[in-house]
Design a protein around this nucleic acid. Structure first.
Lengths: 238, 238
DNA sequence: GTGTGCAAAGATGTATACAGGATGCACCGC
DNA sequence: GCGGTGCATCCTGTATACATCTTTGCACAC
């Protein structure tokens, strides 16, 4: 069973996940108004679960909530992108270290399969399907690394940051060539984790983040014609 | 007017702040059940704002929300204490660095007053009032440092962590002698910030956190008779 | 023609009513 | 005496109705 209609998760949870997915995917672009009435019509739920979902998303920083004025998808600026990557550069290498030192975790059991899948993707020719498969794999990997952290607070913060990163990736249509380098970077991380080399894993993660930031900034600059410098960008063009 | 009864902040906001303050202060100890009905009676608001407040607190990690089973104040374990301080040790020194490099911020304008107040407190004889005054000052200082960070994501995470730290302090009745050392550590941080020495400020912050963790762990060990090792402690005694 | 003021409409904030599920206890059977 | 089942009660999850505020559009005065 994938997910039953009503009995399993509550309706508020469903609305939350749907809205979050739409925001991450860019279907709901930054700045998009989120009227409760409109969301009731969109999701079929009542105002109560809709409100609950909006509050949770606001706590995640994915929507901005103006009192008596409604909700909007939170806007993105070049500065916020840099801020996000600065913070990830602080946290994720540390998460890698901790994960590398937790050999009994489910992460380590998955590593051989992840590695095999990465190699398989390396041999495929570039295509949208390959990109999608890689990103799905990378997301699962990041999640597994975070879950392997014994530090629950760190896990919570990383989980908070993940949707922001996902949104950035989907807002800016990245250069397909980026996949190649990112594959290599992930292989380096996987191998370091498998070897239990915490510092190498952390270094690989830091390098991966630096590359990712450079790519996204370049892409955003190109998409917006270099107009932005600290401006809010209305949406990922397309 | 300071703050009108109803018109200014919404009722949900009021309930949230009240509950959060009670959790931080320890009035609502870890594990305490938070029935919506009981909170309605306690706060005078209706169930809708109460629910909103509970969701926000759950997002902060201050309450645990079991579906169809109600909310409880989140429990605290020795491990969670270590986790929290590990994370703070990662984030707050970096925040200090960034704050030290933002000379135009309101923080720097406040530094002379904060320093004078610290010196004044140093000369007072130990008392509960002095402790309370110091903690209030330290909280304002931490807040000002976080606000001086240009990184909005970092600000958000630091704000999320603050109530957890405050709760720990109030759960464990700290040794009054700790105030003395903490005063000195704060003076070191303030002076480093005033001098614009980012690395010295970060080092001072790290030292302060290490001392704080050691003190709290020792206090908790003593309070619980050393029974806990990874156990949940029911409450900060008293 | 411009600016101000008012009024109507739409939205959010709040309160309450209804439905489904979990927990605890009492009763029955063994 | 002990274990299991069934029911009663309370709770949360959801839906809807009401009150209040913000906003927008228009009319009028300057």
């Amino acid at each position: 069973m994938t997910a039953a209609a009503a009995p399993g998760p509550g309706k508020g949870e469903l609305v939350y996940q749907q809205l979050r997915a739409d925001i991450e995917a860019g279907t709901l672009p930054p700045g998009a108004p989120l009227g409760e009435l409109a969301l009731v019509a969109r999701t079929g739920a009542s105002r109560t679960p809709v409100r609950e979902a909006l509050r949770r998303l606001a706590a995640d920083g994915l929507v901005e909530l103006a009192p008596r004025q409604g909700a909007r998808v939170s806007r993105v600026s070049l500065r916020s992108v840099r801020d996000l990557y600065d913070l990830r550069a602080l946290l994720e290498p540390e998460a890698m270290r901790q994960a590398a030192r937790a050999p009994g975790s489910p992460l380590h059991a998955q590593l051989p399969r992840v590695r095999a899948e990465l190699v398989r993707l390396q041999r495929r020719s570039p295509s949208a399907a390959r990109s999608a498969a890689f990103y799905a794999l990378a997301d699962r990997f990041d999640q597994a690394v975070a879950d392997a952290c014994p530090n629950a607070h760190l896990q919570r913060v990383l989980a908070d940051l993940r949707p922001h990163s996902a949104r950035l990736r989907n807002l800016s249509h990245l250069d397909p060539a980026r996949i190649e380098t990112s594959l290599v970077e992930h292989l380096r991380m996987v191998d370091a984790l498998a070897a239990g080399d915490a510092e190498e894993a952390a270094a690989a993660c830091a390098a991966h983040l630096a590359q990712g930031l450079a790519t996204i900034v370049a892409t955003l600059r190109q998409d917006t014609g270099g107009v932005l410098d600290d401006l809010d960008l209305p949406l990922g063009a397309r």
